[in-house]
Structure formats: structure tokens, C-alpha cells
Design a binder for these strands. Structure first.
Length: 417
DNA sequence: TCTGGGGTCCTAGGACCC
DNA sequence: TCTGGGGTCCTAGGACCC
């Protein structure tokens, strides 16, 4: 049907036997932009770009009219405006996106318990066990697409295949607003003509290195000996690429991946060499990280400082501490020490704090806290502080006030300061 | 008006242990 | 005494994804 561009993309649920394609990949179309347009229907046919206010921001999302001008996610806003000077720029509203995301994900949960979220606007569904109730996978896919639109006003695309990887490629091919079924027997015929960049894990760098070896299509990779592939891209990636190119992807749809790290980072409007300024930003981020860790019930052992200098070179310095912590104060002390050990350095464009080697905290095991509070508290801190004092301008006392936890006296030990 | 912010995974070298 | 080899942890950097 291809409601947005008039081409035929949708595969009729009746015309293809989808019984061998029980893994669905559902992807919301131009998600952030589409959510914004729910409130601005008059802009639906106008190029719209979602991006932050900063001069240094990049495109977070672009609707299809904007994409016709070559505007894509992740390109600098300045470049987007050169490509499409009359585009309307809207600021992102992440709270709203999370709200719609939750709504959509709950539609998935009604269909099958085996749902694997991928970021905010995508998910894999294993519907093998659902066919008794809802019919074959293609019919389930159409049911989902209908429900998502009726309950949210958003369009999504679905790929159905026998593996996660192929399902994801298929949803990409089905966009916008379509369904593509790739029965198991057609997997290789579907895969092999695709460019190598389509493979999961092949980005610009790997693509270039493989192209130099004369490899252009997925089929080329499939027929390359495993050993020479490994020599080209490394042991693990070589094996993975070879498998994917041959349609092999045994990864099951899993309901929940455990977090491995929690961090925040920020790019300054103007590069900074001011030590106090950098320290205040480190304190703000360390505090937010600590809040998220406590709310999620984690303690962490490795503190990472990330810096990007004005020439865009990026370094990281880490330290593993003996006693795992979830306290912003403690994280701040460590990251400050790491920073001062660096000595003099070029002006800083980006600064970030991350905690790694997470393990469940004792309090978490006692079952004290609500995991969903984490993001809200961290964002409250950043929003409140930024609103009152301006980004990166607060001192420790102001931060203490802004980040004091809500709640009762039993939470008193959570206060960092 | 060059390049966000949230992450994961892999590699490679050195320390250290057996 | 010119020199092994496996395993694990730590650190730094980079590719990649949404």
C-alpha cells in the first residue's frame, strides 16, 4: 500500500506462506518526527527535522519529505539546512517519545511474551507460539500494524523472517508503512544481492576495507573463505559476517538484556579549557549517573572519563576501584582525580562520565527501589539544574539543592551530600 | 555554522598467576 | 638460563548501532 509514497510495498498476508518466518522486527517509521507531527498535522507533507537547539546538534529524526532532500539521522543540522533550507526544525521531547514507546511496546506484549526491545522505537517479536491465537506471522504483523496506528496514530513497518537479522533487513525494506515477509527458503535469494553495508556490524570502516578486497555484495561475502574473512576483519567479526551472509543467525529473541554500563556525556556549545567549568559538568554528570545507578539497583567498579578535544580526537581514561559504588559524590571524586592526572590538554568539546562493571547493589537485592525512577530522577536533576542555573553553570551547593532526592526519611542514606 | 547522546562489542598489549 | 603457554584482569581505542 505504501500510503506515503504510492509505491507497492506491502505484502498481502494471504499471498505468502509466512509460517517459516515467525520472527518479527517492528520498526516505527521516522519515530521522533512522527510523534511531533501528531501535534502538528499541518506539517505532515512539509520537510520536518527534529534536532536540538545547539549550533552543534545533529539531526535526530527526519520525516520522509525531508529525506527526499537527502536529510538523514545523524548528519549535522547545519548540513541538513543546506540540503533543505525550508525544512521546519522541531525540538525533541524525549518524555513524549518514551510515552508513545511504552504504548507501542504494550501492544507487542499483548501478542507475545517474547519481545526484545531495541532502543526506543524497535523490537523483535517471536510469534511462533502465538499463531494458534492470532494466525500466521504475516497476519500477526498486520494486526500489530493496525493496532499501533489505531491506538497511537503512528505508522510502523514489519519484517518477518526465520532469523532476527533477516527480519530486521526486511523491515528496513518494507519502510515506510509496509510489511515484508521473507520465508526461510528465500533467505539467501533475499540476502545475496544486498550491498555488504546491509550486514549487521558493517559500517563505513569495515565496508571500505572489504571493498578494497573486491567484496561488494553479501553474496560475495558468503562465497569468501572464512579464513580470509577473518584475516580481513578479525576473528570474531569474520565469523559473524560469514554466518550472517549465509543466513545463519542463531540468536534467540530474548526478553531482557542486562545493563553493562551507565553514563552521561555532553558536548559544549563552545570548547572549554576552564577547569572549574569542566569540574562542574563532571559533578553534574556524576550525580545523574549515581541517581540512575541507585534507582536501577546497581553498583559499579570502573569509573570512565571521556574527553573529546577541539580537533575531535577522543580519549578515555578509566580506573577500577576496590569498593563498588553508586554514589555520585564518589564517582565525582574518582573522575576528577583521573582528570587532573591528565595534566594540560587541548580545549574540550565533549566531556562524559560512565560507570562500568555493574553488579546488583545490596539494597537492590533487598528490593527497595523502583527501577523506572532512574531516568526520571537523572533527567529531573539535569533539567532542574539547567533551567535554574543554565547548563554547566551551577556550583556544588546549587546542585545539592536541585538533586536532593524526593521521598521519605528511609531514603536519607541515598543523599550524596 | 562539521561531526549528539545513549549504549554494546571487539581488539590488543601488559600485568600477573600458575 | 635468550625464554613457554594458558587464563584472567585491566586499560585504551575504535567500530558500530539506534
Amino acid at each position: 500500500m505504501g500510503r506515503q509514497d504510492g509505491t507497492t510495498r506491502q505484502v498481502s498476508a494471504a499471498s505468502v506462506d509466512s509460517s517459516s518466518a515467525p520472527i518479527l522486527h517492528v520498526d516505527l517509521d521516522a519515530f521522533f518526527a512522527s510523534v511531533e507531527l501528531l501535534d502538528r498535522p499541518e506539517l505532515v507533507n512539509v520537510p520536518v527535522v527534529v534536532a536540538g537547539k545547539s549550533l552543534r546538534s545533529v539531526v535526530t529524526a527526519a520525516n520522509y519529505p525531508a529525506r527526499k532532500f537527502g536529510v538523514r539521522s545523524a548528519i549535522p543540522l547545519s548540513q541538513a539546512m543546506r540540503l533543505c533550507p525550508h525544512a521546519i526544525v522541531l525540538e525533541p521531547h524525549f518524555e513524549k517519545y518514551r510515552h508513545y514507546s511504552a504504548k507501542v511496546m504494550s501492544i507487542f506484549d499483548d501478542v507475545t511474551p517474547i519481545v526484545e526491545r531495541l532502543g526506543i522505537d524497535e523490537a523483535f517479536l517471536d510469534v511462533a507460539g502465538a499463531r494458534g491465537v492470532f494466525g500466521p506471522p504475516a497476519q500477526i504483523a498486520e494486526l500489530i500494524r493496525t493496532r499501533v496506528f489505531e491506538q497511537t496514530g503512528l505508522r510502523c513497518s514489519v519484517g518477518a523472517a526465520s532469523t532476527k537479522f533477516v527480519a530486521k533487513l526486511a523491515s528496513g525494506r518494507a519502510k515506510p508503512d509496509g510489511l515484508l515477509v521473507v520465508p526461510a527458503a528465500e533467505t539467501l535469494a533475499f540476502l545475496h544481492p544486498l550491498p555488504i553495508g546491509a550486514l549487521w556490524g558493517v559500517g563505513a570502516a569495515t565496508e571500505e576495507s572489504l571493498r578494497k578486497r573486491g567484496l561488494v555484495t553479501v553474496g560475495d561475502i558468503a562465497s569468501t573463505p572464512l579464513a580470509s574473512l577473518k584475516r580481513a576483519v578479525g576473528e570474531a567479526s569474520g565469523q559473524k559476517l560469514h554466518d550472517l551472509a549465509n543466513g545463519i543467525d542463531p540468536r534467540p529473541v530474548t526478553t531482557r538484556a542486562v545493563e553493562k554500563s551507565i553514563g552521561h556525556e555532553m558536548t559544549f556549545e563552545h570548547d572549554s579549557v576552564d577547569g572549574d567549568h569542566l569540574n562542574r559538568e563532571l559533578l553534574r554528570q556524576a550525580t545523574a549517573v549515581g541517581e540512575r545507578m541507585r534507582a536501577g539497583g546497581w553498583v559499579g567498579r570502573t569509573v570512565v572519563l571521556k574527553l573529546r578535544y577541539s580537533d575531535f580526537t577522543t580519549i578515555s581514561r578509566s580506573k577500577t576501584i576496590a569498593e563498588p559504588t553508586d554514589l555520585g559524590r564518589r564517582i565525582y571524586e574518582e573522575v576528577r582525580e583521573i582528570h587532573s592526572a591528565l595534566g594540560e590538554h587541548p580545549p574540550v568539546r565533549l566531556i562524559g562520565v560512565r560507570m562500568e562493571q555493574l553488579s546488583p547493589s545490596a539494597e537492590h537485592q533487598a528490593g527497595l527501589w523502583d527501577a523506572d525512577e532512574g531516568w526520571r530522577e537523572a533527567e529531573d536533576t539535569i533539567d532542574a539544574v539547567s533551567a535554574r542555573f543554565g547548563r554547566g553553570t551551577l556550583g556544588p551547593a546549587a546542585l545539592l539543592k536541585a538533586s536532593a532526592p524526593r521521598g521519605d526519611a528511609s531514603n536519607a542514606h541515598r543523599i550524596d551530600y
